[in-house]
Design a binder for these strands. Structure first.
Lengths: 118, 118
DNA sequence: ACAAGTACTTACCCCAAAGTATGTAAGATG
DNA sequence: CATCTTACATACTTTGGGGTAAGTACTTGT
């Protein structure tokens, strides 16, 4: 969510790619180190913030909420908070988030068809 | 192809993800700003280095060969050089590179099902 | 002799993404 | 009353991906 500087070729290239290449567009939504992992875990159903944290031990809390927030803005995930204390917040895939499944499934299939060993 | 420092949590996390999450594994192969674009152009058949350069004007030569080299190492693309001068080098998708099509196709479909406008 | 073309290579720099560390609200529980 | 829990927030630092710019080898065309 950090502010973005305007005048840099780097960012110009990025914006240009997102605008002209559908694949880059998708990458801008689900790329990076953590988004796919988070999405993967949400595929198996809604999860609490703390559950996600436990499922992905290596992620820091900062990264976790940062990406959850971004994906909320991109309407890939839905945040639902019970107004109680201690807080109870669940994250789930939106309709458009669910529609990412074919992509991720294709990726998983490809990975296992190669040298990937879980 | 720049050297990679060993002892950093950043890289440790990356390696860990690649090893444990199939989606991250795929991302490590085709992620980044340029790899998908290059692959996309190779989908329509083998291309010379200079052709790729013309097809992707925004890319710098450094990035182009860097990623072509990486994808060679990952056996996604095949490099074929005629031993003549001026050089004549063609890049094409390997079998495993071709098998990325379903993934990229799924991405394109998803992009157009959303607000993406070419 | 000099520019042009092709496929690179190399050195240097910059910045945004990711990591580290610490703090906060508000009620439940002992 | 002090600690625990949950779901964050935020300041500060690091790092590696990408950008810029320049050079190289070898031949052909003028």
């Amino acid at each position: 969510m950090t502010a973005i500087k305007e005048n840099s070729t780097l960012n110009a290239n990025r914006e240009n790619n997102k605008a002209t290449c559908p694949v880059s567009y998708v990458m801008s939504k689900i790329g990076g180190h953590w988004k796919p992992v988070i999405l993967y875990h949400l595929m198996s159903g809604p999860k609490r913030y703390s559950e996600l944290k436990k499922l992905i031990p290596a992620i820091t809390e900062k990264m976790l909420i940062q990406h959850l927030k971004q994906m909320q803005q991109d309407v890939l995930v839905i945040r639902k908070a019970e107004n109680i204390v201690p807080p109870f917040v669940t994250y789930s895939l939106s309709f458009e988030g669910e529609e990412l499944k074919p992509i991720l499934d294709a990726m998983v299939e490809w990975a296992f068809a190669r040298d990937f060993k879980a």
